[in-house]
Write a protein that binds this DNA or RNA. Structure first.
Lengths: 169, 169
DNA sequence: ATCGGTGCAAAACATTTGCAAAATA
DNA sequence: TATTTTGCAAATGTTTTGCACCGAT
């Protein structure tokens, strides 16, 4: 974990739960920790798996319910990178406006921001008579290095690396 | 159906299936017709329902499999408007670069295009070393009319209208 | 006769929910 | 004690799959 220390994140979560009159139980803390300890995007089921391997524990139901709470708090966001899979992204806490670029070859996910893009999106939205509340841009592309050199840093001996995690830019 | 006549669409589908050495059976034609007869976004299960009500028929399995073929052909696109629901959009045939704006109040979906946005997205992508293959921008917003006047054309006596269909802009 | 293609029913998943027991303010 | 929260297991809902049969070349 880097920028906002895990401790700060846990504090924010605790504050949110408290503001709703909810308890920050050890299960909820464990789930929150597991989510924000890395920058990895995750599927709920993967989180269950991860938690099972850790020293703490929480039932599947609790994990799903905690995820919903964290989404409601705005700390966690559901994203969709295609395939109808429900994926969660813990990185909006550090970069609230980031977008996703996915390499179609190696599935690497690059997170990026661009203020100009944001501005333009705002204009377009307002021109249509709406006030934007949330924007999600997903770009799929082919890595130039791979196309030109036949390999890229995410390819391992010709085999694309399956990655759910993300890289910041 | 308007622009590309249904007949033309069916022809294109047939050509695709043929190019793959596959047959354009009456079930596949029925599914294709049902999909492209309107501009509605749909969930596979809804399509099953629609087909059950029509005079033609195809099993659930066939419907799912045909959808996959049509996506592969590029005629149909999977989109995600949040909530992890798998939705399909038949409108990329007419407007290959459109994006989606969803009203958070009434869930109306507005499809829109903007060449400048496309250009900017291209630049950003290339700057990161990628060649874009596909882009999906989803904006959620609040309709100004509703916010200012307390009502909007999609609200029916205060109750938001649930809409899966789309409006072109 | 040979390949697909179809339809059924089962399987595979992911997610939600009801409820009794446990934990906590 | 009152109220949440948890965990289990069952229910739900969607999508995929195996397989026997059907149909077209």
């Amino acid at each position: 974990m880097d920028q906002p220390s895990l401790k700060a994140v846990l504090g924010q979560a605790q504050a949110f739960f408290a503001s709703k009159g909810l308890r920050f139980t050890k299960q909820r803390e464990a789930v929150t920790t597991l989510i924000f300890r890395t920058h990895e995007h995750f599927r709920p089921e993967e989180l269950c798996e991860r938690l099972r391997k850790s020293d703490s524990s929480a039932s599947r139901a609790t994990i799903y319910r905690t995820i919903l709470h964290l989404v409601e708090s705005g700390m966690l966001r559901e994203i969709s990178l295609g395939g109808g899979e429900r994926l969660y992204d813990p990185n909006f806490l550090q970069s609230p406006h980031h977008n996703h670029l996915i390499c179609v070859d190696c599935r690497e996910i690059v997170e990026f921001e661009d203020p100009n893009l944001d501005i333009m999106q705002n204009c377009i939205t307002r021109r249509m008579g709406f006030s934007p509340t949330e924007k999600a841009l997903r770009i799929e592309g082919r890595c130039d290095r791979l196309r030109l050199l036949g390999t890229c840093k995410n390819m391992k001996s010709g085999k694309p690396k399956k990655r759910i995690g993300s890289k910041r830019v």
